[in-house]
Design a protein around this nucleic acid. Structure first.
Lengths: 345, 345
DNA sequence: AGTCGACTTGTAAGCGCTTACAAATCGATC
DNA sequence: GATCGATTTGTAAGCGCTTACAAGTCGACT
């Protein structure tokens, strides 16, 4: 007599079918909530599933159904809290759609983004979401080739090729600059992240510049500092800018983290804010309102974007209609870090 | 001339085999770098792959090989930068092992963690990493049942059931408290995250308490405030503590974010730090050293953990030996937020 | 009672790849 | 030159599920 005490094989769908006295197709139908299944069949199958503790195999299901039950997200980095906030809400919302999340980061290198996309597609995903509007053309080709639902977010470009969910980066940036102009600033500097392959940074810079141009205020090249994303880098930027003669009375930062760095360095240098120097950010990270002084910035709707992306991608995956383009408001948040320039200017 | 403009089926492995004039097994072998493949065969196959632009199908490969090429990470939340830093480094390192990352969050609800684990296992992963040592017993059973490599991290408990990579949460907490005692503090308060299902919070609290106990300094119940993770919550905790009579001269916070909240609220309340109030954190987020005053805290080795988890899990997946338990140093970072208590105490 | 259509269920052919096993090839040895 | 072992390649049977299609069931209608 041969006992298979060794290979205690997992219970398979076929085992359930046998136990319930039905066909494998019926079990599959019950499991997937297919239509045209009698109540009696359903109960029999569910009882058998329960009794045997059956759990379907995701990989087999994926191969047979051509649906893996996961989407891929390509983000520049998770080190920026604004992106991790977005990913957090995206993942939470995806659960409601019975969908998992694969993450890949590319640290602002578009070639790495393309490579990561290729990898995710090969791995198997039902949809993809990318950040921003700047991508290698091959990325679009790849998404098309796989005929997968996809989305870009965090921007508001209307592009027939790229469904999107995001906000206008330029307009609020412009309004920040106008706010400074209204306060009386004329020597305004900008600290920006590298704009290559980063349309958001570019749009914000454009917003700043347009406002100054329209007001007839110059933005000489040495008042634009480009640094990588980071607090240290912001601190370094302040040093550079304060070395100018005359020094700027206000600094527009490409995001909150840079602003934090700028403010820190200013504090260390004994520069009083906002009396001697106004600073603005972009993102409205939780810390922004707790800075000293609280940071004037723009609220990026990270959580909202995450949820909407989940819903929109799920809709597209299930072949339901979805808006091609969703633009969300990104409101100005005026706080204490901006004020009129020193009167002796 | 006939263009196949209609049913342009994807190129499959079989197509490559035919084009190269070899068997499907050979193509598979070349693709997977199997041993015993002649140079000539390899070249033929690689040429065909290149020519046809063949890309293997991840789902089919997963089903046939029982390897999906991805691991799952279960984290409480990505909203805490310390976790997103860890995930960021984990994902980067996983790339070196040709492995993708599936993320699930459970927002400190262990039942949700279990459920998320179940989902990930069903989805198909080659390994799993969980945060901390507190989990539902069913989680362990599930991992065992799937016979998958797994790891817990962010703690230093030696548990034969749980391979781990992390740091001692209690010891540095204890040293923070001792640091305050040495400075002369006697009325010390604690702000902690809820300890249910959170061994890290519990360990830190225990470290605080042990130090005070050993010094014969009381820690009355009303000097322990339990709040959820968040800046707002830290601010609220400060309000409570400053309502005490006498008020504490120092506050030990369960993590940096709570400390940020405490410091903010103190600043708003006009309490000078560190002269009137000392504050400590735990994590050493980038912002910590930029607070005013800079925050005394403990540096949680998030990046290091992420990398080591990637390496260890990859090793286990490939059946290579791996340490059961790795304990990393989490050094104290003494900064300006701690000083001697007011002399009139 | 016979027929039709709507609804249920079963049969079996894949999904695209891996891999055990068998077969073939190739030197080197005696 | 026959023999043996080691290496290389091919054959074909899955991996566990889904789903097109066929078959069966059932009630209503003529």
């Amino acid at each position: 007599m041969v006992f298979r005490m060794t290979a205690k094989k997992r219970t398979l769908l076929g085992d359930v079918a046998r136990a319930a006295g039905v066909s494998t197709a019926s079990v599959s139908r019950v499991l997937n909530g297919a239509p045209h299944v009698s109540e009696r069949l359903r109960e029999k199958v569910e009882a058998a599933v329960e009794r045997l503790g059956y759990v379907p195999d995701g990989t087999a299901r994926a191969l047979a159904s051509r649906h893996v039950g996961a989407i891929g997200a390509l983000v520049p980095t998770l080190d920026n809290p604004i992106f991790s906030a977005m990913i957090d809400s995206l993942e939470r919302r995806l659960k409601h759609h019975d969908c998992r999340l694969l993450i890949a980061t590319y640290h602002y290198n578009l070639d790495d983004e393309l490579e990561a996309l290729r990898t995710l597609l090969q791995q198997g995903i039902d949809g993809a979401v990318l950040i921003g509007h700047d991508h290698r053309p091959a990325a679009l080709a790849l998404l098309r080739q796989y005929a997968l639902p996809y989305l870009s977010c965090w921007h508001s470009e209307e592009d027939p090729d790229w469904p999107s969910i995001g906000f206008d980066n330029a307009a609020p940036a412009r309004r920040l600059a106008e706010h400074l102009l209204e306060l009386g600033h004329r020597r305004i500097a900008v600290v920006t992240a590298p704009t290559v392959g980063n349309d958001r940074a570019r749009a914000r810079l454009r917003g700043f510049r347009d406002a100054l141009d329209d007001a007839g205020v110059a933005l000489p090249i040495d008042r634009i500092v480009t640094v990588d994303y980071g607090i240290e880098e912001g601190a370094y930027a302040l040093q550079l800018l304060m070395g100018l003669d005359p020094a700027p009375t206000a600094i527009l930062c490409g995001n909150d983290t840079l602003a934090f760095g700028v403010m820190l360095a200013a504090q260390k240098a004994g520069i009083r804010m906002p009396e001697e120097l106004s600073v603005t950010g972009f993102d409205d990270l939780p810390q922004a309102r707790f800075m000293v002084p609280p940071l004037t910035t723009v609220a990026a709707p990270a959580g909202d974007i995450g949820r909407r992306v989940a819903d929109a991608l799920a809709a597209r995956i299930h072949r339901q209609p979805a808006l091609h383009c969703q633009v969300i408001e990104a409101p100005l948040v005026l706080r204490g870090s901006t004020a009129a320039p020193p009167s002796d200017q």
